[in-house]
Design a protein around this nucleic acid. Structure first.
Lengths: 250, 250
DNA sequence: GCAAATATTTAGGCTTACCGAAATCATAGG
DNA sequence: CCTATGATTTCGGTAAGCCTAAATATTTGC
């Protein structure tokens, strides 16, 4: 696998393009990419041309952007870096799960491959980060248990939270304060009413810091329903029928 | 202590200016700074003007460059970062002492203060890095045992290697192969002959991987004499008279 | 003390990555 | 089918940090 010389900007572009298609299939457009990166549309046009010249993306003017095999490989290596770093920060340096994202965002561009592999070894080669996201191995292969968007779970079914996006530290702190974390069990008790919302009951058998009031449980439902719809949070089903499995990368 | 917004270039300039005066008093000139940073003289002129505008250095055209109090504070914080990172890489991630310099060089610009303090705590707040260099505390204070340049030790006196520069990984590997490391004891047996060299006898009582032949010992003498003269290696005296103590920063 | 050698700064340019404004393409509604 | 609207690209510019070459200041040797 040949290594194109990359800058941290290039790495960020490729990572965001990949992230957009990690939990659904629609390819990313120029303007969405601009929004996610916090840059102007014109900056994206220029950079995408450069990424195309480097062989990292396929792109025809006025069309969505796709990673090439080489681009995917770079993206997966950045995702591996990010998620291993997050795991390391939590397990070895006592960070909380809402503190790790920004630190990892900086470090992922600075550490060497050697550093990454030492870290992975020290952690016992983990396959899931503190938010439940899968960690690709050094070859870009992803091992992942099947999971679903929260709103795909039918009422009456029980699931275990298998993934929560690390992008919003405030959301993470809020969930924490409600006693909700990775592997928290919940049961869907009601379908969306009035066009929004999804009611879940939290199963707190093994969690003593859970919601103290019914109000908390309602608030939790709203948050989870919202992030569930955006695939920012997924669940692993523990009872009931089989749903579609998410696409697996590479 | 107010924090000027810094780039990694600025951090490197300030660090090199500081490093030049760490083991001797002469201030650094424009061209030496350029050589150490691997940039053109003209680049230094521009950047020094900028550093002056930022209040990090004092400088009159065509004169040497001095750090201001604020510049010194920034430099010490970068030195702290570098040396803590080196220590961490060796102690927690199994790096060898010749591998850490380049990695730390990248990381020191990327990690947060929070990261640095977690690392320091995990290591038990060390005051010396794997090469023997002192690690400033979070306020920039340095704790250091008095040490001397190797060529300041008189014949017959015994010393313990207290510091070896991390800048040349090849030198470090060479010394390692001769069984020479931090805390290796040596006795000066002869003064420079023919205008160069300094003869030392290595005291290998507690070192089983030492030089096997007289040739090795001679080679070791030459290396040590050479790095000793440049203050790239210092010794702590174990016997004999008192020499001048190095200047202490801040 | 002055000319030659050396050190330093200034001048003009390059690259990367960004921006806003203007031009161009694509598509949805009538 | 054809125009209005929105998405995308192109165009001219900026800032940081680097470069070479030219100009200027300092130091050294005689």
């Amino acid at each position: 696998m040949k290594q194109t010389a990359t800058s941290s900007s290039i790495e960020d572009y490729v990572k965001v393009i990949y992230a957009f298609t990690e939990w659904q299939d629609k390819p990313i457009t120029s303007s969405v990419l601009a929004t996610r990166l916090g840059v102007a549309n014109s900056s994206v046009s220029e950079m995408v041309r450069k990424l195309k010249d480097l062989g990292l993306v396929d792109h025809e003017p006025y069309s969505p952007i796709h990673l090439t095999a080489e681009g995917l490989s770079l993206a997966l290596s950045m995702v591996r870096r990010h998620r291993l770093l997050e795991t390391y920060l939590v397990q070895e340096l006592g960070y909380t799960w809402d503190e790790v994202h920004d630190e990892a965002e900086q470090l992922e561009h600075a550490v060497s491959d050697h550093f990454i592999e030492r870290m992975s070894a020290k952690l016992g080669h983990p396959v899931r980060d503190p938010h439940g996201d899968p960690i690709p191995d050094a070859h870009g292969n992803i091992t992942m248990a099947p999971s679903h968007r929260l709103d795909e779970l039918d009422p009456g079914h029980t699931g275990r939270i298998s993934r929560i996006s690390d992008h919003d530290p405030e959301l993470l702190r809020h969930l924490e304060s409600l006693g909700i974390g990775l592997d928290t069990q919940l049961t869907v008790v009601g379908r969306p009413r009035f066009g929004a919302g999804l009611q879940v009951r939290l199963d707190l058998s093994e969690n003593d810091a859970g919601p103290q009031t019914l109000g908390d449980e309602v608030a939790a439902s709203l948050w989870l329903a919202s992030v569930g719809r955006h695939a920012d949070c997924t669940v692993q089903e523990l009872t009931g029928g089989s749903l579609m499995s998410p696409h697996s990368a590479q």
